[in-house]
Each structure stands twice: as C-alpha cells, then as structure tokens.
Amino acid sequence: MAEKDVILEFLASKSAVKSKFYFKDFSDLFPEKGPREVKKVLTQLVKDEVLEFWSSGSTTMYGLKGAGKQSHTEGED
C-alpha cells in the first residue's frame, strides 16, 4: 500500500474519535522510515489539499481538510 493510503486509512479509522494528529502519530505508522521521509509524504498531502495543518499557536497537528473544530479552548479536548 502506498504511504499516502496508509495515512488516509489511519485517519479514517480514527475519524470517530479524533480529527487532529501529531506528526509522531504518522511517523509511528512507518517505523522503517525516518521522520524526514514521512514529512515529505505529509507535505505532499497538504499540497494536494487532502490534509491541513492545525495549530494552537504552540503546537501543530495534521488533520483531514475541514475535519473537526477550528478554535480551541484550554482544557476542552
């Protein structure tokens, strides 16, 4: 399975519980690949407008474009 599909399958499997994910959640999907390789796949998915970045200002996460809430209130996760 292509890396892109692994990522999308992972996101689909979690869609009921979570909409935003740390970079590490994705690098854990590819234990044989280094973080920089995983970053390339994610960056391409962002360029393709499949994924989008979400940030609290201090931490950045990735999610499917348009999924989940946009704004965040402290302690409301």
Partner: peptide
C-alpha cells in the same frame, strides 16, 4: 479568547495563530 485553527497561508504550517473571541 479561544485559540487555534488556521495556521497560515496555503502550504505553510505556521506564521499565523488563530484567535477567536467567545
């Protein structure tokens, strides 16, 4: 204030911090 959300312009993962008033 609430925070988070859009984080920049297309392709950028930073540079903008979303702020919203409740």
């Amino acid at each position: 204030w609430k925070h988070g959300g859009i984080v920049g312009v297309f392709g950028y993962g930073g540079g903008v911090i979303g702020r919203y008033c409740d």
